[in-house]
Nucleic acid binder design. Structure first.
Lengths: 339, 339
DNA sequence: TTGAAAGCGTTACCAA
DNA sequence: TTGGTAACGCTTTCAA
C-alpha cells in the first residue's frame, strides 16, 4: 500500500508538498501539482484518512439519528441529507434509535470521542443531555429536524405543522363536513400537539364547537390506524371525516373502515400527512400534506455544517413550505349521516 | 482534555500499562489495574478513538450500499444490519447509490482509504472493480446481499428467488389460472432473471406453454406498475393473473387496473414480492412473498465481520427461507375470460 | 508483569 | 513556493 512518502519520492518532492497538492492545491505551482497528481495516479495512492483525522482532529462524518428507518418519509429526508453531505464532503452515519434515550446517548458520545463531528436529530430531545460533564463545546454540534425541541439555541428545520394541518382541515371543512375526527400520534409528541392546534384553528374559523372533535390516539403506524377504525365505529354520532396525522395511519384506517363495509369517501372522508410515495396509489388516492422531505434533509445538513464550523447562524428556525395535495379520499359529506 | 500520558503520570505507571489496563485488563496486576482505573476516573479520561483507529488500522465502521433508501424492504434489511452491528461494535455508514457505479466506487475507495472496514453491497456488482490496481487485500472486504453477483469468492446472503417465485406461481396456477402475465424488474437484473425462471418452472410443472406467458418490463417502482396496467389492457387475450416482481409495482398495477374499471381479484389476480409493511393494507390485501429482511441484514453483518477478520468461511452462500403469504388479491379465475 | 521507545501516516510549523 | 521535521495519542514490540 503506497503512502504519501512513496508519492513524494516518485514525484521528486517532499511529503509536505504532496500534502499541499491534495489539501491546498492553490498553494503549489501548476507544474508540481501535475507531477504529484501523476505520481498519485500511478501509485494508486489513497490518503490514509485515519491518519488525517487523527492529525486534524476532524472526522468529516456526521450522525443521523432517526427513530424508525423504515418510515419512508424519513428515508427521503435521509436522502436529502446524503446528497448535501456528499457536496460538503461528509459521510453519513446512520443510527436507528426507536426513541430510546440510551441509544441516542450512545451515539452522542461518539461525537465526544471524536468519531463523528455532529448529529442531526429527528426527535425532540437533546442527545447530549446528561453527557456534558465538562460543559464540552462538542455537545453543541447538533441540529434538530422535523420534530423539534423547544429551546432557543438549537437550529431547527421543519415545516409549520400547525399551519399545514390547518390548511388540510380547512379544505375538509370547506367541503361541508361539520363533525370531524382526528387520528393523532402519541399524545405527548410536539408533532401531535402542533398539528392538533392547527385543527382547532380551522374549527374556530368555521365557528364549530371544538368539543365536537373526536380525538383518537395512534402511534403513527398503519396498525394503529386499523385499530382506530374499530374505535371510530363505536361512536354514536359518527364523524363524516377523519384527519390522520400521517399517511401510514390513514392506510390502516381506510383498510379498517372498508373491512367494516364503509366506502371512502362516500361514507367517510380521510386525509393523511407526509405524502409518502404510495399515498397516490391508495384506494382512494389519499389527500395529504406534502412535506419537502429532501429539502428538509439538505437544509439540516447545511445547518449542521455551519454549526460545526462555528459560523454565525442568524436564522435558527428554518420553516420550509408544505403543500396541500387534494386527491379523491375526501368529498362532500352525504346529506344524512350514516347511522 | 486528559490524555493517556496524564493518566500514566497520575497513576505512577507507564503509558503502556495504562493502555493494557484498558485493552487487555488480564495482563496487569489487580493492584495496578485499580490504581490506573482510579486515575482514569479522576481525570475523566476518554481514549481518543481517532488515535486508536489510526494506530490499529481499524475503524469499526462498515458501509452499507443500498440502491434506494426509501424502499421499505431495504429499510428492514438495514435495521437488521444495524442491530447486529451494535453487538459486534460496528457503526454503520449508509450510502445510497441509485445503482450508479461511480458512487459505488467512491464508497469503495473509503475502504481503501481506511475510513471503513468493509462493505455490504445490495447490487450484483463488485464495488471495488477498477479500483483494485494493486491486488489490494482490502478489496476483499465486502459481502453481497439480496441481489448477488455470480462469482465464487464473495459471501452471498439472499433467499432462493427462483424457488420463492415458483412457489407463488404454483399457488396461482393451482387456483386454475391458465393465462398469466409477469411484471418484471429491469431485464438484466439477476433478480428478474432468477424469479422469471421460477415462473417458468411452475408453468412447466403444469404443462402450460411458456410462450403463453406475457412479460412486461418494469423498474420496481409503483409508477411502472401503473404504466404496466395500461400495456396489459391492450393485449387481446388478457391474462387472468399478474405476478409482480415486487410489492411497489403491484400497488401501482392494482391502482391502474382499478382505474380502468377492473375488480381485483375478480377480474384479475395480482401478486407481489417482498411483503412490505403496507402490503397487508392494500385493497385487496396483497398476496406476496415475505423475505426475512432483518435476518438477511444480521447474517450479512456477521459474514462481513468474519471476512474482515480473515475467518475461514465454509459456507459462502447463505440462503435464507422465504414465506408465501396468501391474502385476498388472488382468487380462482372466472369461467369466461374478460374481453 | 512492567517500562522504554519505536512507530503509525498525516499535517503544519518554520526556514530556506 | 518548497522542504525538513516535530508533533498528534495511541498500541505494540522487545527487554528488563
Amino acid at each position: 500500500m503506497a503512502g504519501i512518502k512513496d508519492v513524494a519520492t516518485l514525484a521528486g518532492v517532499s511529503v509536505a508538498t504532496v500534502s499541499r497538492t491534495i489539501n491546498e492545491p492553490d498553494k503549489v505551482t501548476e507544474q508540481t501539482r501535475i507531477t504529484v497528481q501523476k505520481a498519485i495516479k500511478k501509485l494508486n495512492y489513497h490518503p490514509n484518512v485515519l491518519a488525517r483525522d487523527f492529525r486534524t482532529r476532524r472526522t468529516s462524518r456526521i450522525i443521523v439519528l432517526v427513530p424508525d428507518i423504515s418510515n419512508t418519509f424519513f428515508s427521503n429526508v435521509i436522502r436529502g441529507i446524503q446528497r448535501q453531505a456528499k457536496g460538503l464532503k461528509y459521510a453519513v452515519l446512520l443510527g436507528e434509535t426507536r426513541n430510546d434515550k440510551g441509544i441516542e446517548r450512545e451515539y452522542a458520545s461518539m461525537v465526544l470521542s471524536r468519531q463523528a463531528d455532529g448529529i442531526i436529530q429527528f426527535s425532540p430531545s437533546n442527545p447530549f443531555l446528561d453527557l456534558a460533564k465538562d460543559n464540552d463545546p462538542l455537545t453543541d454540534f447538533w441540529v434538530n429536524a422535523c420534530e423539534c425541541i423547544s429551546d432557543t439555541t438549537t437550529p431547527k428545520i421543519r415545516i409549520d405543522n400547525t399551519k399545514a394541518m390547518e390548511t388540510i382541515a380547512n379544505q375538509v371543512l370547506e367541503m361541508g363536513h361539520k363533525k370531524i375526527s382526528v387520528l393523532l400520534g402519541p399524545a405527548d409528541s410536539p408533532l401531535t400537539i402542533s398539528r392538533l392546534s392547527g385543527v382547532y384553528a380551522a374549527l374556530e374559523k368555521k365557528k364549530i364547537d371544538p368539543k365536537s372533535l373526536t380525538k383518537i390516539e395512534g402511534d403513527f403506524s398503519a396498525r394503529s390506524g386499523t385499530q382506530a377504525a374499530l374505535d371510530l365505529l363505536k361512536i354514536k354520532t359518527k364523524p363524516t371525516a377523519v384527519l390522520c396525522f400521517n399517511d401510514e395511519m390513514a392506510f390502516g384506517l381506510i383498510h379498517g373502515l372498508k373491512q367494516s363495509g364503509l366506502s371512502i369517501p362516500e361514507d367517510m372522508s380521510v386525509t393523511g400527512f407526509d405524502d409518502i410515495e404510495l399515498a397516490q396509489y391508495c384506494d382512494p388516492p389519499l389527500s395529504t400534506i406534502s412535506q419537502p422531505a429532501m429539502q428538509i434533509g439538505s437544509t439540516a445538513m447545511t445547518a449542521l455544517h455551519k454549526k460545526i464550523n462555528g459560523k454565525f447562524n442568524s436564522d435558527l428556525e428554518h420553516i420550509l413550505p408544505a403543500d396541500l395535495i387534494v386527491r379523491s379520499s375526501i368529498a362532500a359529506p352525504r346529506q344524512r349521516q350514516i347511522s
